[in-house]
Design a binder for these strands. Structure first.
Length: 276
DNA sequence: CCAGCCCCCTGTCGGC
DNA sequence: TGCCGACAGGGGGCTG
C-alpha cells in the first residue's frame, strides 16, 4: 500500500529518532529471505557500529546512508511498517516483526510486515537498489516538458505507465487513479494519444494528488500506519479510490471499478471518457 | 515495447 | 457458523 506519500510520511516521522543514532546489533530471526544485496551473516556484522547519517525517500524506498559508506534501505511493499520503539514497548505484541536493529540509546528500529513482501537492503553501491528508477515527480527538475516528451514515446495505457517505476517513481495504484480523475483522463487511454493539454494537466494532477497525500499524512486503508502507530487521513479525501458505486464529487455519476494492468482501477466514466 | 498471466505471502471480506 | 474464492496499496519474471 505504501506509495510515495505514505513512505514520505514514514521518513519524516523517523528522522528525529534515527538520524545520528549508531546501530549496535541486528536480529532477523527466520526471515533471512527479506534481506537483500548483502548475505545475512555479513549483513549483521557490517551494520554494527555504523551511524545513520540521514534518512530520505527515493521512489518508495526509505534510504539511510551510514557512516562507513554503506546504505541501509527498506521497501515496505504492501504491508510493511518501520518504526522506532523502546525495547519493552509493544514487545512481542507485534506478531509480524521480521527484522530489528538495536540503537545506541537502547531503542529499537523495527521492520514489521504481515505478507513478507517487504525488503531490507544493505549495499555500498546505492545504484544497485535505485539505479533503474525514473524521476521523482515532486523534484524541481521534473518538468511538464520532460513528462510530455517521454510519454509521447510510449504506447501503454496511461494507468500502467503511471505505475511503471522506471517511468515515474513513487506513484502507486491509489494515487494513479486519483491523478487520472483530477485530470479527467480515462485510465485506458494510450499514453502517446494524450493531447499536450491533457499531458500537461496530468503532470500537474500527479503532483497535486501526491502532495495532498503527504499533507494528509498518507492513506490508512488497511495496513499502513505512521511511525507513531496512528493512521493517516488521506483516504478521507479520495475522489475515486475505494468509492465504486458512490457518486462522483464532480458530476454525481456513479464511480466505476474495472481492472487495468491487473489492478483495481476506479474512475468516473462521465468525467473521464475514453474519447472527448 | 506491450499485454496478460503467474508468483511471492497473509489476512479479510463477501457469497453460499 | 463454516468454508472457499476473490482480492488487497508492490514489484519481478515469464510468455506470446
Amino acid at each position: 500500500m505504501p506509495e510515495l506519500p505514505e513512505v514520505e510520511t514514514v521518513v519524516r516521522g523517523l528522522r528525529a529518532p534515527l538520524v545520528g543514532r549508531t546501530l549496535q546489533s541486528m536480529w532477523y530471526g527466520a526471515h533471512e529471505s527479506l534481506l537483500r544485496l548483502t548475505p545475512p551473516d555479513e549483513f549483521v556484522v557490517r551494520i554494527v557500529g555504523q551511524r545513520i547519517e540521514s534518512i530520505y525517500r527515493r521512489a518508495k524506498y526509505i534510504v539511510m546512508p551510514l557512516s562507513e559508506g554503506d546504505t541501509l534501505l527498506v521497501h515496505l511493499k504492501m504491508t510493511g511498517r518501520l518504526y522506532v520503539t523502546e525495547p519493552a514497548a509493544i514487545h512481542d505484541a507485534d506478531r509480524w516483526l521480521r527484522v530489528k536493529f538495536t540503537l545506541d540509546n537502547d531503542q529499537e528500529l523495527r521492520f514489521s510486515d504481515v505478507r513478507k513482501f517487504g525488503r531490507v537492503y544493505l549495499t555500498d553501491d546505492l545504484t544497485r537498489a535505485t539505479g533503474k528508477l525514473g524521476p521523482e515527480p515532486l523534484a524541481d527538475d521534473f518538468t511538464p516538458e520532460h513528462f510530455r516528451e517521454r510519454m509521447a514515446k510510449r504506447k501503454k495505457n496511461i494507468k500502467a505507465l503511471l505505475l511503471d517505476q522506471t517511468f515515474i517513481a513513487g506513484v502507486g495504484n491509489i494515487y494513479a487513479d486519483e491523478a487520472l480523475f483530477r485530470a479527467g483522463i480515462h485510465p485506458q487511454r494510450r499514453s502517446n494519444r494524450l493531447t499536450d493539454d491533457e499531458a500537461t494537466r496530468l503532470y500537474h494532477t500527479v503532483r497535486a494528488a501526491l502532495r495532498a497525500g503527504i499533507q494528509h499524512e498518507g492513506a490508512s486503508i488497511n495496513w499502513y500506519r505512521k511511525p507513531d502507530g496512528t493512521k493517516g487521513n488521506s483516504q478521507d479525501h479520495f475522489f475515486v479510490y475505494g468509492r465504486e458505486g458512490q457518486s462522483c464529487h464532480n458530476c454525481g455519476h456513479p464511480i466505476e471499478k474495472i481492472r487495468v494492468a491487473q489492478r483495481g482501477t476506479h474512475f468516473c466514466p462521465n468525467c473521464q471518457p475514453m474519447t472527448r
